[in-house]
Design a protein around this nucleic acid. Structure first.
Length: 483
RNA sequence: GGCGCCGUGGCCAAGUGGUAAGGCAGAGGACUGCAAAUCCUCUAUCCCCGGUUCGAAUCCGGGCGGCGCCUCCA
C-alpha cells in the first residue's frame, strides 16, 4: 500500500509516483491578498497543509511552495480605492494571512513567492512564448496566448473548447484577440495600474502580468519544469489551471504537473459563502467569537476534501468536544500509573491504529477516515486502561508515540495545547484554590468545596478528582488567560 | 441550457459487492460526597421504486430532494 491521489486530469484515483524518487515538489495556489482570507479559503489551505504534513510524515523530501497573488484586477482596484500602491495595499493582508495560517497550526511553506517579485521572469516567459509562436502581440499592446497553437487545450477540464466556444461568447471589448479562447499573458497598463504602481516595462510597452501567467512562472521558477502536485480550489480547474498547463507546456515542452488536486468549496451554515449572502466568515472573526483554532481545524478536516462540507458554529462546538476528548486522552496517558506486570494489548492496538491511519491518509488523504482510526484507538485504550491499575511503561509509550505520530499529520493536539496554556500566576492561583477546596472536602464542607469549584470554573478551568488527587485543565482559554 | 456531485442513526461523517467506522448530542448503568473524566449498554437494514447478482448502502435504470462549476473567486 502506498499513497493514492485523485488526479483531476485523469478523473481517477491513481498511484502517486513523484518524478524523482523520494522527493516531492508541491505548488499550492495560495490566496489573492486583496482582503482577509475567509473560512472557505482555509478549507482549501488546511487541506494543503495536511498534504504537506502527510508527505513529510511518509518520509518524502518535500519542497512546498505557496504563492501569494499580489497583483490582479481586484488587487489593483482595492489599491486605487485605498490610494496606495499594490505593494503597500497587499502587505498587511499578506501578513494577516500568514498569521492566520500560524493560528490554525499550518506548517510553513518553504517559499511564499509574490507575483510582483517575478515580473522579470514573467516577461522572459512571455517573450519565449512569442518566439515559439504560441503567443502574439495584439493591436492594443496586450499579449495573448494562442489556444489554437496548443492542441491539448481543455484536457484538464475535459471539455472540447473548439466547439464549446464557437458560440457567441466573444465579449465586445476583447475583439483584439484572434480567437475567443485566447487569454491574456500580459495586459497593457491603464491609468489605474500606474496609479497603483502595478505597471512594469516590457518589450511590448508598460503593462502587467495576466493572472494565469503568474502561477506558471512562479511554480516553474521555484520548482522546475515538472511539478508532482499542484493544489487548488475546485474553481480553479477552468480556466486558471487549464491555462497554466497550456502556457507552461508550450514553453517548456515538458509535462507541467503530474497530479492535480482540487478541493471542493466549503458551505457555510448551509449555503454557499458569498458577500451578498452576508455569510462571509473570516478566521479572525471566529477566533474573536471565542472559537478554539483546534476546533476550526478539526471541523475543516472532518470531511474528505472532495466532499461537501458545511461549516457551522454548531459543528464547531461538536469539534471542540471531540478535540477535548483527545486532550483528555493525552493527559491520561501522561499520568497513567505504570509498573511491572503482564504485557497488555496496548502495543498491538497502537500498531493497528497507525496502520489504519496510514491507510486512510494514503487513500487520497481521507482525513475523516483517519480521524475514525484515531478515535477508535482512544476508546480501546481507555477501556484497557480502566481494566488495569498499572501497565508497563513501554506499553503506554507505544500509545503515546502513536498518538504523537498521528498528530504530526493532523496537528490537532499541538494546536489545542497551545490554546490551553495559562500564565504561571493563573496556575498558582488554581493550585491554591484546589488546596483550599481539598481542605474543605476534608472537613466534609462540600458546599464550600463546590463553591470553590464554581469559582475555578468561572475562569475557564475544570477540575477532576481522581485516585491520585485533583487535576485541573483549561477548557476555555479566553476566560482562563485573564490573569 | 451545458458539465458534475451528493442524499448513511437527532446532528456531523467514513464505508464503492459480502450483511453498517468514528465524532457530537441523548437515555440507562458503573465509578464519585456531588461532579468531571472514563467505561458498559441502548438508538440505522443506508431518500423512493424497479433491475442485475447467491448476495448491494455500494452496480444499472427511473423518480424525488439538495448542491457545485460553467463569471472574479480557495
Amino acid at each position: 500500500m502506498s499513497l493514492k491521489v485523485f488526479n483531476t486530469e485523469a478523473r481517477a484515483l491513481g498511484a502517486f509516483v513523484p518524478l524523482e524518487a523520494g522527493k516531492v515538489r508541491v505548488y499550492a495556489c495560495g490566496p489573492t491578498i486583496y482582503d482577509h482570507a475567509h473560512i472557505g479559503n482555509f478549507r482549501t489551505f488546511l487541506f494543503f497543509d495536511v498534504v504537506h504534513r502527510h508527505l513529510e510524515w511518509s518520509g518524502y523530501d518535500v519542497r512546498f511552495v505557496m504563492n501569494l497573488t499580489d497583483v490582479d484586477d481586484k488587487t489593483i482596484k482595492g489599491a486605487v480605492a485605498a490610494g496606495r500602491s499594490v505593494a503597500d495595499f497587499t502587505r498587511p493582508f499578506g501578513d494577516a494571512f500568514l498569521s492566520d495560517c500560524r493560528r490554525l497550526g499550518m506548517l510553513a511553506a518553504d517559499s511564499y513567492p509574490r507575483a510582483t517579485e517575478y515580473i522579470r521572469q514573467m516577461v522572459d516567459f512571455v517573450a519565449r512564448l512569442i518566439d515559439k509562436k504560441h503567443a502574439y502581440v495584439a493591436e492594443d499592446g496586450a499579449v495573448y496566448f494562442s489556444v489554437a497553437s496548443f492542441p491539448r487545450y481543455g484536457r484538464l477540464k475535459g471539455i472540447d473548447t473548439s466547439t464549446l466556444m464557437a458560440g457567441a461568447r466573444v465579449s465586445q471589448d476583447e475583439y483584439e484577440k484572434e480567437d475567443a479562447r485566447d487569454f491574456a499573458l500580459w495586459k497593457r497598463a491603464v491609468a489605474a495600474d500606474e496609479q497603483a504602481s502595478a505597471a512594469w516595462d516590457s518589450p511590448w510597452g508598460r503593462g502587467r502580468p495576466g493572472w494565469h501567467l503568474e502561477c506558471s512562472v512562479m511554480s516553474l521558477t521555484e520548482l522546475g519544469d515538472t511539478l508532482d502536485l499542484h493544489l487548488g480550489g475546485e474553481d480553479l480547474v477552468f480556466p486558471h489551471h487549464e491555462n497554466e498547463i497550456a502556457q507552461s507546456e508550450a514553453s517548456t515542452g515538458k509535462q507541467f504537473v503530474r497530479n492535480w488536486l482540487h478541493v471542493k468549496h466549503l458551505q457555510v451554515e448551509g449555503r454557499k459563502m458569498s458577500k451578498s449572502l452576508g455569510n462571509f466568515v473570516t478566521v479572525r472573526q471566529l477566533l474573536d467569537e471565542g472559537f478554539d483554532p483546534a476546533s476550526i481545524r478539526h471541523q475543516l478536516l472532518s470531511a474528505h476534501y472532495r466532499s461537501d462540507l458545511n461549516f457551522t458554529r454548531d459543528g464547531l462546538d461538536a469539534s471542540r468536544s471531540a478535540v477535548q476528548r483527545l486532550v483528555d486522552f493525552d493527559d491520561r496517558l501522561a499520568a497513567a500509573p505504570t509498573g511491572p506486570g503482564a504485557a497488555t494489548e496496548l502495543p498491538p492496538v497502537s500498531a493497528e491504529t497507525l496502520e489504519a491511519f496510514r491507510a486512510a491518509m494514503d487513500n487520497d488523504f481521507n482525513t475523516a477516515d483517519a480521524l475514525g482510526a484515531l478515535f477508535g484507538m482512544v476508546s480501546r485504550v481507555n477501556a484497557l486502561l480502566d481494566a488495569r491499575t498499572t501497565v508497563p511503561s513501554d506499553d503506554v509509550k507505544s500509545v503515546r508515540d502513536a498518538l504523537a505520530s498521528m498528530d504530526r499529520v493532523l496537528g490537532l493536539l499541538q494546536l489545542a495545547r497551545a490554546a490551553r496554556s495559562v500564565d504561571d500566576s493563573v496556575a498558582a492561583w488554581v493550585e491554591e484554590r484546589i488546596q483550599a477546596r481539598a481542605d474543605a472536602r476534608k472537613r466534609k464542607d462540600f458546599a464550600a468545596a463546590d463553591a470553590i469549584r464554581a469559582e475555578i470554573a468561572a475562569r475557564g478551568i475544570a477540575i477532576e478528582d481522581g485516585p491520585a488527587g485533583t487535576r485541573w485543565k483549561v477548557t476555555d482559554a479566553s476566560a482562563a488567560r485573564v490573569g
